[in-house]
């Protein structure tokens, strides 16, 4: 108990929670349609683009968020548009963009401070980097995501389940896809410095898949995904403090643990 009070009294922990809880909530909600639409790797692709943008911003001395947000949003629109009609298929295009961004980011970083602690904290995250504007943006983002999912829940379900049917009934599927891309990009940019470039996509994929092990209704999957994500985030942060492990990795391991437990429950339930 003393540990927890001590933990909560530290400014950087407060900020980490104020950024992390809204971000993990948003990631979990966005993750359900993204996983179902077979865009699981988009988080990974976008976080690498984000890494590239952050390195460029650091070397040029630009404000990191104001530069990386538009870049990652543009990349998100591009990736969600690659539907398979193009000569380079969606998954291959994601792989190209991921590795190319990483390569450029690493080279740019080596021009600046050199490849050392900076790259390490970019790759695996650091909870010490959160600023006041991160907190404000994260809370605003999570409110936007929650409003979207509550007000347009049925339309999002329709577009996720069957885009051609949704379009035929007059739903503007493109608009919802753009909104998903925009909010995913923002979630990734805000979450990646804490979680790390290599780990942030875990926040998008794990909660959705965990919820789908046990629940078979869309609404239950959504609610469960959001709850699992927030609980795992708090558990991971606490564990990282108690055992002095890296925060991002501890959160993903907490997600893995939840996934394992839900898989066992699911297997027992639907035997």
């Amino acid at each position: 108990m003393d540990d927890i009070i001590q933990l909560l009294s530290m400014t950087f922990i407060q900020r980490a929670l104020l950024v992390g809880i809204p971000v993990s909530l948003s990631a979990a909600l966005l993750g359900v349609p993204l996983v179902l639409k077979r865009y699981s790797m988009i988080g990974d692709g976008l976080s690498h683009v984000g890494f590239c943008a952050l390195s460029v911003a650091a070397v040029m001395n630009w404000a990191p968020l104001y530069f990386s947000i538009p870049v990652v949003v543009a990349a998100a629109f591009l990736l969600l548009r690659l539907s398979g009609k193009e000569k380079i298929k969606g998954d291959a295009a994601t792989a190209l963009i991921t590795t190319a961004s990483l390569a450029i980011g690493v080279i740019v970083t080596s021009f600046g401070s050199g490849l050392n602690t900076d790259v390490n904290s970019y790759m695996f995250g650091s909870i010490l980097t959160m600023s006041r504007s991160d907190v404000a943006l994260s809370i605003a983002l999570s409110i936007a995501v929650l409003v979207l999912f509550v007000l347009f829940y049925n339309k999002l379900l329709a577009v996720t389940f069957d885009e051609s049917f949704a379009k035929a009934t007059g739903i503007r599927a493109e608009l919802y896809n753009m909104l998903l891309a925009l909010l995913t990009a923002l979630t990734i940019v805000l979450g990646m410095r804490m979680m790390g470039t290599l780990l942030i996509s875990g926040l998008i994929v794990f909660p959705a898949l965990t919820a789908m092990r046990v629940f078979k209704r869309f609404r239950s999957v959504m609610i469960c995904s959001a709850c699992v994500s927030v609980v795992c985030f708090i558990a991971g942060i606490t564990a990282s403090y108690v055992f002095s492990t890296p925060a991002g990795a501890s959160i993903v391991v907490a997600d893995l643990a939840a996934f394992t437990v839900f898989s066992i429950i699911g297997a027992a339930k639907y035997r």
Partner: peptide
């Protein structure tokens, strides 16, 4: 429309799916 791969293992109840036809 024709069924898509996405739908075959989609986690939604039948009622939720049918209701998407009533959105208009």
């Amino acid at each position: 429309p024709q069924q898509t791969d996405i739908q075959r293992d989609f986690p939604a109840s039948v009622m939720e799916v049918v209701l998407t036809g009533c959105l208009k």
